[in-house]
Design a binder for these strands. Sequence first.
DNA 1: CGCACCTTTGATGCTAATCAATAAGGGTGG
DNA 2: CCACCCTTATTGATTAGCATCAAAGGTGCG
Lengths: 215, 215
Amino acid sequence: MSHAAIIDLRPMRAQRAVSDSCEIQSLRADQHDIVFYEGDAAGRYFKLIDGAMMLFRLLPDGRRQIVELLGPGDYFGLTLADEYQCTAEVLRPSRIAAYDRSACGEAGHFQQMLSEYLVGRHAAMHGHMVLLGRKSAMERIATFLAGLAGNVEEGEARIRLSMTRQEIADYLGLTIETVSRSFSDLRRRGVIAMERQDLILIADMSAITALTGDE
Amino acid sequence: MSHAAIIDLRPMRAQRAVSDSCEIQSLRADQHDIVFYEGDAAGRYFKLIDGAMMLFRLLPDGRRQIVELLGPGDYFGLTLADEYQCTAEVLRPSRIAAYDRSACGEAGHFQQMLSEYLVGRHAAMHGHMVLLGRKSAMERIATFLAGLAGNVEEGEARIRLSMTRQEIADYLGLTIETVSRSFSDLRRRGVIAMERQDLILIADMSAITALTGDE
DNA sequence: CGCACCTTTGATGCTAATCAATAAGGGTGG
DNA sequence: CCACCCTTATTGATTAGCATCAAAGGTGCG
């Protein structure tokens, strides 16, 4: 929770990119870098080109809820308010494109792309609200793993977690201990194997699917 | 959970509205009417002109999570998929505008409005995820009431609930009993008074605010 | 090698869910 | 208008699941 949180976004190239009407900068960022904090003035928005990030919000007493996980192609920092309403933190080495908010408002086909993107995220967030509001700890873990495994339906899948147990807990609305216990439980049952703390082999994908609470 | 669910959307006028490029129909609907079910073919999307609605999703075993509450001006049924991903139910007598999905895709300024709308909802959904993932039962109830009270900061506020206890529970990720107990608790403490089951007088707005867990 | 951080495991407690019964509304028809 | 019924809400007793508190075990890095 208490990262050094040094803002250390290194430009990939100094000059503006002319390829896109309102791209102003391309950046590289490492794990634990903060792109913006909740409350920062919201002058730009971003696209994650490559890597992984998370968006989270904090309650005054320090409780954290990760509200979105982002992968390549995802936008973030989109807000109509003057300030960002969440904090954006890098989970693993990433490339990020920054856009000027004011310059992009009018760009036509960009609007189109944007709303399509937002509609998609909308649905994903509905799914996550079901998880947070109605699923048991094990169902949350299984849903999380199934999501990371992507389209793999059956058999094995290998997953790289770029999140700590604490981050997973804050994403799933659980505690670190419950996350750990759930993993251990799955391991004992032979459903998964942990090749490393952050490298999970799903031995039985259909077992995971069956545990999600969906379908 | 098991409503008669008769789809009974009565057109307000038979012919198309020409005022808007892609509005195809204006409808009236009553409490418990279903505008669309999860899984229905998604040919249209909608705008709630007046009234109140909810969007919810069901898990196969019947657990329900209300993912959005809608008021006048809100859009719903926006999806890129072929099917709606949630069910839309009317909470109180409402007027609804229906739009043809395909016809609207290109309409320029509509895109703009749409993405602005979506960005706003995005933020609201983040807030609700914090509630579902990290807040106690009492904090959820207080946040819910504070939200309904709108901009009233201090003193009294009068709130009309157009939701049953079960619906409130499904929105807040709680059970009906916990919702009821929380209300009773607030009543005993003199923070609220129930003028009717669905009519709440918030006697002490600052007490509610203090209980939300925010700020 | 040793330190710092993260994870796992264990013991206990608490919150909210579940199970169960009573009470209160709200409509309807006599 | 009132009695009755059905739905919804409240309250109580108990339980279950997850959080919390505490300590030991891993892992990676300087």
